[in-house]
Amino acid sequence: MLEVSGLTTTYGAIAALRDASLTVGAGEVVGLIGPNGAGKTTLLGSIAGLLPISAGTITFDGGDITSTAPEKILRSGLALVPEHRRIFADMTVEENLKIGGITTKSSERAQLLDEMADLFPVLRQKWDTPAGYMSGGEAQQLAIARALMSKPKLIMMDEPSLGLAPILVDLVFELLETLRSQGRTIVVVEQNATRMLEVADRAYVLRSGEIVADGTGQELLDRSDLFDTFVGG
């Protein structure tokens, strides 16, 4: 469904991502793990069209989306839940969700709003509250729900458990399970490597801007050198 090959992204002099290639099949949950600064966020940002790409190609759902504007990529069915959630703080929960569904028809949008309220009961409670007043866990749910509003064929999440208390991290992973059971295709960047690998069908390990390992979640869990690769050895 998503195919990335030879992707290189540079910030000024810094090559944040070098020659990265990966594939994601329909219905898969794919994890991207690796230490801070490994290029995971850059990879997602490049796919979503937020960052200018120096080399490589990205195809999604049969179409070339290399160097396309982010709004067009979203419209082709690829959504990103950005790092740090980036919710619109002075807009209400409902307004945040509506923006998420800006590409849908208004009748459909109303229906999606209902679906999200069912899927995330906490959002229903805070429906008319400005999103800036929500706790980290609530905001994360809003960010995910907002991305789901566009009915994406593939949803990418950047560190959904970042800065959350352990109990909320559990919640995020439960949510991943729920979304997977709905048959959605998901790419997740996670620092919480062990848990990610337990959930993921397949995963890629990044380090210093390169993809250094890949395999099914279980394969990577079984690899004894993972700890070293991951925390730097």
């Binding site: 991290v169 490597a193 848990r195």
Partner: peptide, 10 residues
């Protein structure tokens, strides 16, 4: 420390 690094499951 290992837990903080590899996730609470560890």
């Amino acid at each position: 420390v290992q837990a903080a690094y590899l996730g609470s499951a560890a």
